[in-house]
Computed example of a mutant assay.
Amino acid sequence: MYDELTQCLKAEVQKGKKSFSWGRTLHCALKCADRRFYFWFRVWGYLFKTNKYGLRKFAKHRMTKLNRKYSTDINPRACIGAGLKIVHFPGVVIRGNSVIGKNAVIRQGVTIGARNSTDEGLTIIGDNVEIGANSCIIGDISIGNNVTIGALSLINKNVSDNTIVFSQNSIVYRNKGDEESITLTSIRYSQAS
């Protein structure tokens, strides 16, 4: 777990090619607000998962405060690989039963959640996945590696590797009294080259 913590801190806070150093990491965390989020997110997550020094309850409390400060709701039980990048923090929700691979890019308003309170399986997201703004990934599903999910997409089925997924929306104008005209959103899958 400690090696995973240092890999995450190097990729998300320290950045660059130099080897990991707590001094460089702390300097970067103090200097940049977004890197400060990743620093505390990883430290509190590590203490929560390992219960190091009996600090699980304290780490959960600090994680809750961090989530409130940055307008996110990321469960400390979620397993997220190194290289996480949240482009805009507000509205990001990630359930505890999530496994997200390396180099994930998440934009504002993304929800990775369960269908209902009895959903106990995992939402598995592969490496190098980019998730567009206000997208929802719902349920016990698997998303492959190198997937791009377009903005405003609803994903509730498995997605294979090297795929681009987006909602194909259309705008329908209708009179206020006309209830016959309804617009449905469909999801298209295409293989990336």
Results as ranks from 00 to 15, higher is better:
residue 4 E to M: 05
residue 6 T to N: 01
residue 6 T to S: 02
residue 7 Q to H: 08
residue 9 L to Q: 04
residue 10 K to Q: 13
residue 10 K to N: 03
residue 10 K to H: 14
residue 12 E to Y: 01
residue 16 G to M: 02
residue 18 K to F: 05
residue 18 K to P: 00
residue 23 G to K: 06
residue 24 R to G: 00
residue 25 T to L: 01
residue 29 A to N: 03
residue 32 C to A: 11
residue 33 A to Y: 11
residue 33 A to P: 11
residue 33 A to R: 15
residue 38 Y to N: 02
residue 40 W to H: 13
residue 42 R to P: 06
residue 43 V to P: 00
residue 45 G to M: 05
residue 47 L to E: 05
residue 48 F to A: 11
residue 48 F to I: 14
residue 50 T to G: 08
residue 52 K to W: 03
residue 53 Y to K: 08
residue 55 L to K: 12
residue 55 L to S: 13
residue 58 F to M: 12
residue 59 A to H: 07
residue 59 A to F: 09
residue 59 A to N: 10
residue 63 M to H: 06
residue 64 T to A: 08
residue 64 T to W: 04
residue 65 K to Q: 13
residue 66 L to D: 06
residue 66 L to I: 10
residue 68 R to Y: 10
residue 71 S to G: 00
residue 72 T to I: 06
residue 73 D to N: 10
residue 75 N to G: 04
residue 77 R to W: 03
residue 78 A to I: 00
residue 80 I to V: 15
residue 81 G to R: 06
residue 81 G to E: 11
residue 83 G to L: 01
residue 84 L to I: 04
residue 88 H to I: 00
residue 89 F to L: 13
residue 91 G to K: 12
residue 93 V to K: 07
residue 93 V to E: 08
residue 93 V to A: 09
residue 94 I to D: 12
residue 95 R to A: 06
residue 99 V to Q: 09
residue 102 K to H: 05
residue 103 N to V: 00
residue 103 N to R: 10
residue 105 V to Q: 08
residue 106 I to Q: 03
residue 108 Q to N: 14
residue 109 G to M: 10
residue 110 V to N: 08
residue 113 G to I: 15
residue 114 A to K: 14
residue 116 N to Y: 07
residue 118 T to R: 12
residue 124 I to Y: 07
residue 124 I to T: 14
residue 126 G to K: 01
residue 132 G to F: 07
residue 133 A to T: 11
residue 134 N to L: 03
residue 134 N to K: 02
residue 135 S to V: 04
residue 138 I to A: 08
residue 139 G to L: 01
residue 140 D to L: 00
residue 140 D to M: 12
residue 141 I to C: 09
residue 141 I to H: 06
residue 144 G to V: 02
residue 145 N to A: 04
residue 146 N to W: 05
residue 148 T to K: 14
residue 153 S to P: 09
residue 154 L to Q: 06
residue 155 I to P: 09
residue 155 I to R: 05
residue 158 N to W: 00
residue 158 N to Y: 00
residue 161 D to A: 09
residue 162 N to I: 07
residue 162 N to M: 09
residue 167 S to W: 01
residue 171 I to Q: 11
residue 171 I to H: 05
residue 175 N to M: 08
residue 178 D to H: 08
residue 178 D to Q: 04
residue 178 D to I: 12
residue 178 D to N: 13
residue 178 D to E: 13
residue 179 E to N: 09
residue 182 I to R: 14
residue 183 T to L: 02
residue 185 T to W: 00
residue 187 I to Y: 04
residue 187 I to P: 01
residue 187 I to V: 15
residue 190 S to E: 14
residue 190 S to V: 15
residue 191 Q to H: 07
residue 191 Q to R: 15
residue 193 S to I: 11
